[in-house]
Computed example of a mutant assay.
Amino acid sequence: MPGRELRGLLHPFLLLLIFERPGHGYDLIERLETMGVSDVEPGHVYRVLRGLERDRSVISAWETDGAGPARRCYTLTAQGHDDLRSWVTHLTYLNQVVDACVRRSADAFERAAGVGRRDPYAVRG
């Protein structure tokens, strides 16, 4: 899927991943890849996470356990849970519309192939 469409869907994708299991930024980026969302810019993911935090959909806390630097761990809030439910409703509708478009396109291509349209550039003899 082209990047522009996916960028607009990072909100629900991240809400879902955090609902499944709280995580830090790079963990979430790796988990996005398992959903088929690859080549996402880390800076964009962090901007979306900050926006989700501003909207009170997620909260973050510094995690200092283990080796390495401290990392922010993101957790879903009650507001985030409601936002995710809202997104799922919206995505379900969008999926139905896209599915109808794909089916209609397949039918149109089949009809066009069955009509045997002539190539307007073919040499006539």
Rank of each mutant, 00 (worst) to 15 (best):
R31C: 04
L52R: 03
G43V: 12
P12E: 04
R111D: 05
W87G: 05
G8V: 09
V97L: 04
R124M: 09
A100C: 13
V88Y: 06
A100N: 15
W62F: 11
Y121V: 13
T77E: 02
I59M: 15
L6P: 04
V88N: 08
H11F: 11
R85L: 15
D107S: 09
A61K: 10
R56G: 07
R4W: 11
R124V: 14
L91W: 02
M35V: 11
D83G: 00
V97A: 05
V58L: 08
R71E: 02
L15S: 03
D83E: 06
P120W: 10
W87Q: 07
E63I: 07
S57Y: 13
L52N: 00
A106I: 01
F19V: 03
V40Q: 07
P120G: 08
G25M: 12
A78N: 12
E41A: 12
S60M: 09
L9P: 03
A108R: 01
V48F: 05
G8F: 10
H44G: 03
Q79S: 15
D39T: 06
R117G: 13
L49T: 04
E30H: 08
V45G: 06
I59A: 14
Y74A: 03
R4V: 15
H81D: 15
S57K: 10
L94R: 13
R124C: 08
A78H: 14
C73S: 12
E63S: 14
G114I: 00
E110N: 06
L84I: 02
D65T: 15
H44V: 13
S60Q: 10
F13K: 06
R56I: 05
A78K: 12
F19L: 12
E33Q: 14
E5H: 09
Y74D: 08
G36K: 09
R54E: 15
P69I: 09
Y74G: 06
N95E: 05
V37W: 00
R4M: 11
T89E: 15
V40Y: 00
L10I: 05
D107V: 03
R50Y: 04
D39A: 13
L17E: 00
R7N: 14
A112V: 02
E5Y: 15
L32P: 03
W62H: 13
L6C: 00
V58H: 03
H24N: 12
H24G: 11
T89N: 15
E5K: 13
R118I: 08
T92N: 09
P2C: 01
A122I: 03
L14A: 02
N95W: 05
A67M: 14
E53P: 02
P42R: 12
T92R: 12
L17A: 03
V37Y: 03
G51Q: 10
E41K: 06
G80A: 14
V88M: 10
W62E: 15
G36T: 12
E33N: 13
L6Q: 06
R104K: 14
V97E: 02
I29H: 00
T77L: 01
P12K: 01
S57A: 13
A100L: 15
R104G: 14
D82K: 03
P22C: 01
